[in-house]
């Protein structure tokens, strides 16, 4: 069982770099009580999501609130287990592994939270916050742990004397640096960053992003970067995945997505970001209505109610994510039928 994927992996390395982490058909459904005598509803927070993350690269997940971004982050770090699907890490399906191996591999996937004010234990000193993962998992001595903690503090741009301070003595940016350092304590391969900079000042955002990019190069980290801030995504991501109501609607290289968005939803999303360069500016597309309730999703394409190009087919059939040209894929009948006016081929 353990040998087969290894050989498979090594044969693949010759052709293309294998993804370090991938998900196949990930689903997360939450049953919801709707009241006495009513059948429980099902919230499809994630409904069949496929993704791949390559080592040392950044996959950005974008979408509006409630589209399942954070649920995806919770699945990747196994805070929650998916209802259905496969979650592969280094060629092994994490969900079918035995407890010990899973615990071992889980250390290689870490998470950085959105709010640095809530993600650090207020009663612990920075030193013990950083060393906690090592205390739980490692066999290092106290001195070795401290050395590693100090080493990482320095790496994220903090000073050794910060080791003995409490989180409330730091600013938001410094706290996020501490959170990053904690994420790196176990030498992870994949870091899931759930809106890591959206709680910070714009000036501090840039510092933290640059720090994350430096660390990525230095430590060959793969990021799954969850964000709703597209300008940040454009800055940091290699691949972008656009989600809508628990489904992926478009996936592709950052440059392609930002210069030639295909899905109408991606276009609408991009048009909401201010741009300096007038050539790439898209006229403001105002989406009418709200994100539909995942408890009662519309039939057919989930976006059809807010899409100006929707036709009868969109209301009935559900589009699947299709490979368009090599790396990018999009789930839209409009593209299949070649009836979207902004795409000139």
């Amino acid at each position: 069982m353990s040998e087969q994927p290894m050989t498979q992996q090594s044969s693949e390395t010759t052709a293309a770099k294998p993804p370090i982490m991938s998900g196949v058909g990930l689903k997360q459904h939450y049953p919801v009580k709707q009241g006495f005598m009513k059948p429980p509803g099902l919230v499809k927070a994630l409904d069949g999501v496929n993704f791949t993350v390559e080592a040392g690269k950044t996959l950005a997940v974008v979408g509006e609130s409630g589209c399942g971004k954070s649920t995806l982050a919770r699945l990747l770090t196994m805070i929650e287990l998916p209802t259905d699907g496969e979650l592969n890490f280094e060629g092994k399906n994490l969900l079918t592994l035995d407890r010990e191996t899973r615990k071992e591999l889980r250390q290689r996937i870490q998470i950085i939270f959105q709010n640095p004010y809530g993600s650090l234990n207020p009663r612990k000193k920075v030193g013990s916050i950083l060393e906690e993962p090592l205390v739980i998992n490692g066999k290092l001595t106290k001195a070795e742990r401290k050395e590693r903690a100090l080493n990482l503090l320095q790496k994220v741009g903090l000073k050794p004397e910060h080791y003995d301070r409490y989180p409330h003595m730091f600013s938001g940016g410094q706290r996020q640096r501490i959170a990053i350092a904690r994420g790196l304590m176990m030498n992870p391969k994949v870091v899931v960053a759930d809106e890591p900079v959206s709680a910070l000042d714009v000036s501090v955002q840039a510092q933290v992003l640059n720090l994350m990019m430096d660390l990525q190069q230095e430590l060959d980290l793969a990021y799954v970067f969850i964000s709703h801030d597209l300008s940040v995504v454009e800055h940091i991501a290699d691949k972008v995945m656009v989600m809508y109501l628990g489904k992926v609607v478009e996936y592709g290289a950052t440059e392609d997505i930002f210069t030639h968005p295909q899905h109408p939803y991606t276009r609408a999303l991009l048009s909401s970001t201010p741009r300096i360069d007038p050539e790439h500016r898209i006229d403001k597309i105002r989406l009418t209505g709200e994100l539909p309730s995942p408890l009662n999703p519309p039939s057919g394409c989930a976006f059809h109610g807010r899409c100006e190009f929707a036709n009868e087919r969109c209301k009935v059939e559900t589009p699947v994510l299709k490979d368009q040209s090599g790396e990018s894929s999009v789930a839209c009948f409009g593209i299949d039928e070649n009836r979207l006016p902004y795409i000139n081929r």
């Binding site: 805070i79 993600s119 612990k124 739980i136 176990m186």
Partner: peptide
């Protein structure tokens, strides 16, 4: 449900550690 408890969980902390070392002091 605060993030610091979840991050301890991600780090692999067991129930006893979460209860007495992570949550209780707060």
């Amino acid at each position: 449900n605060k993030d610091y408890v979840i991050s301890s969980r991600v780090a692999g902390a067991g129930a006893l550690r979460l209860m007495f070392i992570v949550i209780l002091p707060n």
